[in-house]
Write a protein that binds this DNA or RNA. Structure first.
Length: 432
RNA sequence: CGGGAAGUAGCGCAGUCCGGUAGCGUACCUGGUUUGGGACCAGGUGGUCGCAGGUUCGAAUCCUGUCUUCCCGACCA
């Protein structure tokens, strides 16, 4: 994929072109109607919208960029030789939600959105699944956040998509969070924006499309999946600061002695590509620094004072378990490198264990409701496959189908609500 | 868009019922003592009480209007 940037403003007529897409986003758009302000003649020092500066066509602040990008793709794609077209954009988008939630659903948010065009359906589907796996891998290996890869039910599908794949994460309060999506758009946008290419047989065909994105919501996921009452707990791989070293001393003499040990250690850690800070700011006391770095989630803290110098040791505290242990200063850099890896794994394992304990098979409606109110988490239950039933469950239990897991086992059963026959279980949860 | 709550010092709040010189904690500044889990003592700086009207000798406080924010719901990445 290559990075590109498209305009923030989308003419209203562009957004209208793909019907499902337009319908889905119409109710949450910020709209530019004028291009000028002027001094308010009635209120000194105040400005008003200049009624003479009304736009002929309103501009929509992009809620997503399919419309403007596919308008452009029409000019960029003529031949099978132009395909696949693989573009990624880092951008802000605006969705005027009725209610916002910090990090999870803000009116403006940052994301990356990929938009690809392909010659065949299979190639596009492959791309869709590939990007889902990229997201899943990032969540699991870097954020230490286990996710369920799945596919959305029809009603949860992206506006304009044929299929929406997703990764779903579980937060510590038992609620699910959609952490990323990857859409197979079929030929919907190609048809809406008239994007055709000549194939090798010189026949005109509509191109096949995908789009996919993850947003600053991932920050919210990171916070809610790992934090405790003392603040953030960041997985080492993405922690801006992996190790902080706090000196404990009385007077300059002791400080110099500690410096002698710490400065070479800092150099060693940096040589191992470890992000380390020697927090020898004299304005804050050790206790303050401990609390501060814990709140910010620094994975490992080293504390070194006169007492440690005598024994040639250093106190090593890990943020995730709050465990403190003294190690010899000899070979400490290696110990820390290994500890960072251990923490990364431990955080993932902890989150995974929690999630596994919170996927509950349920076959009885009363039990279903009881579990949602109490234990929370994902409920694996049979569903008759209809949107009506899905809506009814949402209405009654405030739970939605988070996804139908990929590689789901086929199993005969009866719908949790209607008792109608079902071929597989799906995952329900209350979600953010 | 419905229901609730709140706007007073940088931040967190009390004071409003019952009108009478603007308070507390924290932060900040100065000096001193401190430094192994968010130090202590002393002194000090800082606020047109969201905004606009009204009642009154006098309004943070009473009345009217208005704006904003947060929470809960419906909507959604």
């Amino acid at each position: 994929h290559v990075n590109a940037y498209f305009p923030l403003f989308v003419p209203k007529s562009f957004l209208e072109k793909e019907e499902g897409h337009a319908e889905g986003f119409a109710k949450e758009c910020a709209i530019v109607t004028h291009y000028r302000l002027k001094a308010d003649p009635d209120k000194k020092g105040k400005l008003m919208v200049d009624p003479d500066a009304k736009l002929d066509e309103e501009l929509i602040i992009r809620p997503t960029s399919e419309a403007i990008i596919w308008h452009t793709y029409k000019d960029w794609i003529q031949s099978y030789r132009d395909l696949p077209l693989l573009i990624n954009q880092w951008a802000n988008v605006v969705r005027w939600e009725m209610r916002t939630r910090l990090f999870l659903r803000t009116a403006e948010f940052l994301w990356q959105e990929g938009h690809t065009a392909h010659a065949t359906a299979n190639e596009a589907i492959e791309e869709t699944r590939k990007m889902l796996e990229v997201y899943a891998t990032f969540a699991e290996e870097f954020m230490a956040l286990p996710v369920i890869r799945g596919i959305k039910s029809e009603s949860e599908r992206f506006a304009g998509a044929i299929d929406t794949y997703c990764i779903e994460a579980l937060m510590q309060d038992g609620k699910a969070l959609q952490a990323g999506t990857s859409h197979f758009l079929g030929q919907n946008f190609a048809k809406a924006f008239d994007v055709k290419f000549s194939n090798k047989e010189n026949q005109q065909e509509f191109v096949w499309a995908t789009s996919w994105g993850v947003s600053t919501r991932l920050i919210g996921a990171l916070v809610m999946a790992h934090s405790d009452d003392d603040g953030l707990i960041l997985p080492p791989k993405i922690a801006p600061l992996q190790v902080v070293i706090v000196p404990i001393y009385k007077g300059e003499d002791q400080k110099s002695m500690i410096d002698e040990k710490v400065l070479p250690l800092v150099a060693q850690l940096k040589a191992l590509n470890i992000r380390v800070k020697y927090d020898d700011n004299d304005n804050a006391r050790p206790g303050w620094k401990f609390a501060e770095h814990e709140m910010k989630g620094v994975p490992v803290r080293l504390a070194l004072g006169a007492r440690d110098l005598e024994n040639n040791v250093v106190e090593v505290a890990r943020r995730d378990t709050k465990e403190k242990k003294s190690y010899s200063l000899d070979g400490i850099a290696e110990v820390i490198r290994n500890l960072l890896e251990e923490i990364q794994q431990a955080m993932f394992d902890k989150a995974l264990t929690y999630r596994e304990q919170h996927i509950t098979k349920v076959d009885d409606w009363n039990e279903f409701e009881k579990l949602l109110d109490g234990k929370g988490g994902f409920l694996s239950a049979h569903w008759d496959g209809t949107t009506e039933t899905e809506d009814a469950i949402k209405e009654k239990a405030k739970a939605t189908i988070r996804c139908i897991p990929l590689n789901n086992e086929m199993e005969e059963g009866k719908c949790i609500l209607t008792g109608k026959p079902s071929k597989q279980r799906v995952l329900f949860a209350r979600a953010y």
